[in-house]
Design a protein around this nucleic acid. Sequence first.
DNA 1: CTTTCATATGAATACTTGTTCACGTGTTAT
DNA 2: ATAACACGTGAACAAGTATTCATATGAAAG
Lengths: 121, 121
Amino acid sequence: MARKHEEAERCECMHVHEDMIEMVETHMPQEEELADLAEFFRVFGDTTRIRILYVLMCSEVCVCDIANLLGMTQSAISHQLRVLKQMDLVKNRREGKTIFYSLADSHIKSILSQGLEHINE
Amino acid sequence: MARKHEEAERCECMHVHEDMIEMVETHMPQEEELADLAEFFRVFGDTTRIRILYVLMCSEVCVCDIANLLGMTQSAISHQLRVLKQMDLVKNRREGKTIFYSLADSHIKSILSQGLEHINE
DNA sequence: CTTTCATATGAATACTTGTTCACGTGTTAT
DNA sequence: ATAACACGTGAACAAGTATTCATATGAAAG
């Protein structure tokens, strides 16, 4: 989503100290890392994906079960599982015709609960 | 983002047990809470906003300093600060003509570093 | 091989979102 | 009052995204 922002017209003021600029530039992650970080959090920015993650917290389940539980089409779930998989939030396992999905990492739960903590003041 | 999904055509299979369905439904947060949660994480899903947060981790700064530091227009920054403020991630303070922004909450840092932990395996 | 079932995927569409542009607001100084 | 400055904001546009629809893949059964 970050668009162009090449040469922005800047105002004249500059309140920050020189060492502050230094400090910001040393603490700020690299551009690529920032992009990865934003992409990571964007995955949590959708209720369907969050609901899928909450289902997978309870149990390993197949795609069509998730679709049933959430009242959505298999296709929609499959598309979102792809996103979750690409970000390494879920993993899957084949058993005959069905494919079972589960959480890839246990600290996903921790991130979600920290989010809940914040919105509940 | 989350669109209609009223009546989805569901496949016939149902692998999950009855008590699993029960468990999912008791652990899944309410619809409104899920929406708030997604909205919260969506704020972190943009590199500009993340960069602003990293700047504010270092120091309380004014809008135009952020614009200068990030090489973007004051307007773009102002729009994003509004989003951050609405989600209670930042607070501000007026001093004459300038308005200083700072982090509203210290555990924002914790959420960001957990994100970094994940993407660095 | 053909059919059936569970899942994946590409294209299309409606919706969302970040930035820019122009202008409005509020404060300080002259 | 007027000008200058820092910041906020609404409209508009481009780019991104979630879902649907139709179809493809891949495995098991007949």
